[in-house]
């Protein structure tokens, strides 16, 4: 008798949980999962975009094999993207945690500085970047090939060069050494904000305890801030990995969207799926390793 009642409560709870998630699940399935599965089908087909619609012919793994045998751009770009990401992720995380901890302090002008650190996110997306790029395009007409890179992608380096604030040779040398650092700073905007939100939810009482127990700032950081923040660090690790892999500056992403825009849908899909699977394996592995170490109240 008791068991039956209990089970019905459990199943009620189960359905309740589902009803809360259903709106999102429906939307995500329609707009993200289905298109994504469609690309899997495209990658196995010969797709032709005609005036009257799309024609498809099943060809099996031909597109995948083509990536390795017929196409000499896929593999180098693929490995370059991998290298970029592996190099970037830890640095982005460390930098954004560092800045977030500082920005979380109480001092005059913190909202101003937070805004400054979020500016790259506002600028690097959508309309604004295309405007700055469009501007670069018109300059290109005057100055030859110099800004042709600029038209494809915008990074700190190119903006600095283009703006002519410092001599080109100095810029080149400076960026040869620390090139990636500035691009990294630029990519940390979202992570900084997520970290700040996480820092805000750490109970102030814990800091008081640490203080009373005589912990110094270094110990407080590792024993309180870092530990309490660990679930959010996991979030940011995942976000950063995914964001760096899908970054439009990544050579392979640029190559895929270029291929897709020229309506070579089947080949773009095949490349995207191979890339997706590799990223999936990496993200899954990292997540499995680190999420166990994160702090949680239920332990």
């Amino acid at each position: 008798m008791r068991q039956v009642k209990r089970r019905s409560y459990e199943s009620k709870k189960k359905w309740l949980g589902f009803t809360f998630i259903i709106p999102w699940l429906v939307g995500c399935t329609t707009f993200f999962v289905r298109p994504f599965l469609m690309t899997l089908y495209y990658s196995l087909c010969d797709v032709k975009v005609l005036d009257e619609g799309v024609s498809m012919k099943f060809v099996g793994l031909k597109n995948y094999i083509h990536a390795f045998t017929g196409d000499n751009e896929f593999l180098p770009k693929f490995t370059e993207s991998m290298n970029n990401t592996l190099f970037q992720v830890p640095l982005i995380l460390m930098f954004s945690l560092f800045i977030a901890v500082i920005l979380n302090q109480k001092f005059r002008g913190r909202v101003f500085f937070r805004t400054v650190y979020f500016l790259p996110v506002i600028i690097a997306s959508g309309v604004v970047i295309s405007l700055i790029r469009g501007d670069a395009f018109s300059q290109q007409l005057l100055s030859g090939e110099r800004s042709s890179m600029m038209f494809q992608a915008v990074s700190m380096e190119q903006l600095l060069l283009k703006s002519g604030i410092i001599n080109e040779k100095v810029v080149n040398y400076m960026f040869y050494v620390i090139n990636n650092i500035f691009d990294l700073l630029w990519k940390s905007g979202v992570q900084i904000l997520i970290f700040i939100a996480g820092l805000k939810t750490i109970p102030p009482a814990l800091y008081e305890v640490a203080k009373i127990e005589g912990a110094n700032a270094w110990e407080t950081f590792w024993m309180v801030t870092f530990k309490m923040l660990s679930p959010i660090i996991v979030v940011n690790v995942v976000y950063t990995i995914i964001d760096s892999f899908n970054d439009y500056l990544n050579p392979i992403i640029m190559y895929i969207s270029q291929t897709s825009r020229s309506l070579n849908i089947q080949f773009a899909s095949a490349m995207a799926w191979m890339y997706f699977l590799v990223v999936l394996i990496i993200t899954g592995t990292v997540l499995a390793v680190i999420s166990k170490r994160a702090f949680s109240y239920t332990d």
């Binding site: 189960k14 699940l25 298109p35 495209y42 993200t283």
Partner: peptide
């Protein structure tokens, strides 16, 4: 509840779906 973990994982990995190629099938849908 059952399926909680599956859905959570699914959400994490669906962050990966924002690849440029989905624009075309999205348009079709």
């Amino acid at each position: 509840f059952k399926g909680n973990r599956a859905i959570s994982n699914f959400i994490t990995y669906s962050l990966l779906f924002t690849a440029p190629v989905t624009a075309f099938p999205q348009y079709i849908i």
